Simulated scan of single mutants.
Amino acid sequence: MDLHPDRGSSSLVLERATTDIASFRSRVPEAALDDLRRRLALVRWPDAETLPGWAQGVPLVRARRLVDYWLRDYDWRRGERVLNAFPQYRTSIDGLGIHFLHVRSRHADALPIIITHGWPGSVFELVKLVRPLVDPTSFDGRPSQAFHVVMPSLPGFGFSDIPSTSGWGVERTAGAWQELMRRLGYRRYVAAGGDFGSAVTHALAALRSPALVGMHTSFPTCLFDPPAIAPYTPEEADALAQLAAYRASDSAHAFQMTTRPQTVGYGLEDSPVGLGTWIYEKLAAWTDSPHDPDAVLGRNSVLDNITLYWLTGTATSSARFFWEDPTWPVPRLQLPVGVTAFPADIVTTPKVWAERTYPQLTHFSRAPEGGHFPAWEVPLVLAQELRATFEPLR
């Protein structure tokens, strides 16, 4: 499966996928990296913010530091090797090429799991989780806790195709994931995800396929339509305050991409600095850190994720995923569900909300650390949560 530059742009064109499952490796042409470096060198900076800290967005000094490292020290080829260390594939489902990692455990009785990333993440967000799941004995686990892991790139993200028509939202994606697991030969499996990955996982569960026997989420879709009943518990009051703060000062990106994804895309596709700071702000706000995502994710890992968006030209198409689903469904699910609440997430899920939302809530836990990107921030914690959630289903 080959990549080549799109004439007239810096993005890449993927070889057309078929219904066969074709092996894939990232081999970005050097010309695309040269173009990125040229654009980084020609950045025109705004003036500095007029308030200290992050109140007006990414501070100029932090943006300069990120871009200087991106231009002078960052090596995409290293990031590419991180991704290419795992078996990757592309296959056409419902007319769209879907990219995914598929890593089978050496343990014969491993449980298949499909895990979905969100925005502004990618499969780079999930790769630290792979080895603890497929090889639990190397990470304080037992052979009986092993998983076969499937990690797809959402439509319009990473190395999945960009939809050319509307309609590729959460529910259609869930249908594609169901077909993907069938195509891989899995007749019994579980699912997990956070952010948009949670919405897709809920939609997959709502299809009520007998093959899907359980799910886990770190970000229940009910958080944006909370089942709060006054008088509120202290946990609920905290969560409602977090939700109000998000809506008041941290949700402009979602409103813009939900209403005008095409317009915001022009700046993001034309300027790597614009794209990088657009993503970096959310990594800073939503990780379990004092607005220092480099400290918990690693600067190279942060730039792997950002650079993937840039090289694949998926800033606009990923924004359209918001437009497709301005509100997330909260289906009444009839299967076992596990929920883990992470303390630095956008909203920390109260246990009572999980109990009201999921009739078959079989596992609930409050993690000691971690934010909106647990697979990226605290992969061993999330791996343990997935083991605990799905232990009874093996």
Rank of each mutant, 00 (worst) to 15 (best):
M1R: 03
P5E: 00
D6Y: 04
D6E: 11
R7P: 12
S10H: 06
E15M: 03
R16L: 02
A17N: 05
T19C: 02
I21N: 12
R25Y: 06
R25S: 15
S26D: 07
E30V: 00
L33W: 03
L33M: 15
D34R: 10
R37A: 14
R38G: 15
D47A: 04
A48L: 01
G53V: 12
Q56E: 07
G57Y: 02
L60V: 02
R62Y: 08
D68W: 09
Y69P: 09
W70M: 06
L71R: 15
D73C: 12
Y74K: 10
R81Q: 15
R81V: 07
L83Q: 13
Y89P: 11
R90T: 03
T91Q: 03
T91F: 01
I93E: 00
H99W: 01
S105T: 02
L111Q: 06
I115S: 03
H117D: 09
P120L: 10
S122C: 05
F124D: 13
L133A: 09
D140S: 14
P143I: 12
H148G: 13
V150F: 08
M151H: 07
M151F: 14
G156H: 06
F157Y: 13
I162Q: 10
P163C: 05
G167L: 07
G169L: 08
R172D: 10
G175Q: 11
R182E: 10
R183C: 06
R183S: 14
G194P: 00
F196W: 14
F196K: 10
S198K: 05
A199T: 12
A199S: 09
A203R: 08
A205S: 04
A205V: 13
A206V: 08
S209R: 09
V213D: 02
F219I: 11
C222V: 08
L223E: 05
L223H: 11
F224P: 09
P226M: 14
P227V: 11
P231D: 01
Y232K: 01
P234V: 01
P234R: 00
A241Q: 12
A245S: 09
Y246M: 00
A248M: 03
S249A: 07
A252P: 00
A254F: 06
M257P: 02
Q262H: 11
Y266E: 09
G267K: 04
P272R: 09
V273F: 06
G274N: 02
G274V: 02
G276C: 07
G276A: 15
Y280S: 00
K282D: 04
A285R: 06
S289Y: 12
H291N: 05
P293H: 11
P293V: 13
G298N: 07
R299V: 10
S301R: 11
L303G: 15
L303Y: 12
D304W: 06
L311C: 07
T314P: 10
T316Y: 00
S317D: 03
R320V: 05
F321K: 12
F321S: 15
W323I: 00
W323C: 04
E324F: 10
D325G: 04
P326S: 00
V330C: 15
P343D: 03
D345H: 07
I346R: 12
A354D: 11
R356W: 06
L361Y: 05
F364H: 08
R366W: 05
G370S: 11
A375S: 13
W376M: 13
P379M: 13
L380H: 13
L380K: 14
A388T: 14
A388S: 15
E391Y: 03
